[in-house]
């Protein structure tokens, strides 16, 4: 992996760690952006980690773009020596797969889809070689996910599954984006899941919906009182399939201001994970469920 540095106009530097997605590339993006934050470089105004790249916005009246470039390249040498160990949290996100609301929405936009005769999840299961939607849901919820980017719109997480490449689910986005997506839809595009934080346009396939609010500008949700955005890059997520009854119960808790997501602090080592993916994931589940 050799990072490619390029200017985005006179106010941004964009660094592509790798053309393709991998947890290695994501960890470089995360450690580089942490290094930039810790370096407190004068003139830096935004530090944005992404899946396999990152972006720094700066004020060229304060620091010349060439000097900013030099600073970043100097930090890369330091960040590479990092241990690839992350103190982070694992979060259970309940998902009502094949819910009636995303179903209604996907039926309204069939003419923009690759396979108008199937639902989004039927299509995704079929092109990934699963013989049933149930087996596909097992794969989607069976191994945890890294939040590898937060963005597009307010607080929307992109998630990358913690399995080797042969087991990665890959689904193209809609042929043409929809003009509507229900809030808290669990979507899929390329090799990323996402959770739509707000209602609006979208091009990702829709698999289900979570009752768990992840963005609250009014900050009335108890666990969003400190900050209105729930996710940050480096969070680990476990999707837990739930049925209609469990969904309704969770929504009632949300409305009563009593819903609290299950969260545990964990330490993640990329080298341990690469040595034993299933074993590492099993340990993460033990931590999440106090087993």
């Amino acid at each position: 992996m050799s990072s490619r540095y390029t200017f985005g106009g006179d106010e941004h530097i964009f660094v592509e760690v790798d053309e393709e997605m991998s947890l290695e590339a994501f960890f470089v993006s995360l450690s580089m952006t942490n290094a930039v934050r810790n370096a407190n470089i004068k003139g830096v105004t935004e530090i944005c980690p992404a899946n396999a790249s990152f972006q720094i916005k700066f004020d060229p009246d304060v620091i010349h773009p060439d000097d900013m470039m030099k600073e970043l390249k100097r930090l890369e040498a330091q960040a590479e020596q990092g241990e690839n160990v992350l103190e982070t949290r694992i979060i259970e996100v309940p998902v009502y797969y094949q819910d009636p609301w995303t179903y209604d929405t996907l039926m309204r936009f069939r003419e923009r889809h690759q396979d108008p005769s199937a639902t989004d999840i039927e299509y995704a299961a079929s092109i990934n070689g699963y013989d049933s939607v149930e087996k596909f849901i097992e794969a989607h919820s069976g191994a945890p996910w890294f939040v590898s980017m937060v963005g597009f719109v307010s607080g929307l997480p992109f998630l990358y599954q913690m399995v080797d490449r042969s087991r990665q689910i890959q689904v193209p986005k809609y042929l043409r984006p929809r003009t509507d997506t229900p809030r808290q839809t669990v979507g899929y595009g390329g090799s990323f899941s996402c959770i739509y934080s707000v209602r609006g346009a979208g091009g990702y396939q829709m698999f289900g919906i979570t009752p768990m609010p992840i963005y609250d500008p009014e900050q009335s949700v108890p666990y969003l009182k400190d900050f209105m955005v729930f996710f940050k890059p480096g969070d680990i997520v476990r999707f837990k399939p739930i049925n209609r009854e469990e969904y309704d119960a969770a929504i009632a808790q949300v409305q009563a201001g009593e819903y609290m997501p299950r969260i545990r602090n964990v330490r993640f080592s990329l080298s341990e994970f690469n040595a034993d993916m299933d074993g590492t994931n099993a340990k993460l589940m033990e931590a999440l469920y106090d087993r």
Binding site: G8, G9, E11, H12, F14, E16, D18, E19, E20, M21, S22, C48, A50, N51, A52, S53, F54, Q55, K57, M149, G151, F158, R165, Q168, Q170, P172, K173, G189, G190, S191, F192
Partner: peptide
């Protein structure tokens, strides 16, 4: 096309968009 970028040649692995890009 790189893994995770999508099939269209205009696709990249999802990344940040600078203002004015």
């Amino acid at each position: 096309q790189p893994f995770s970028a999508g099939a269209d040649p205009s696709n990249i692995t999802d990344a940040c968009y600078p203002y004015g890009s």
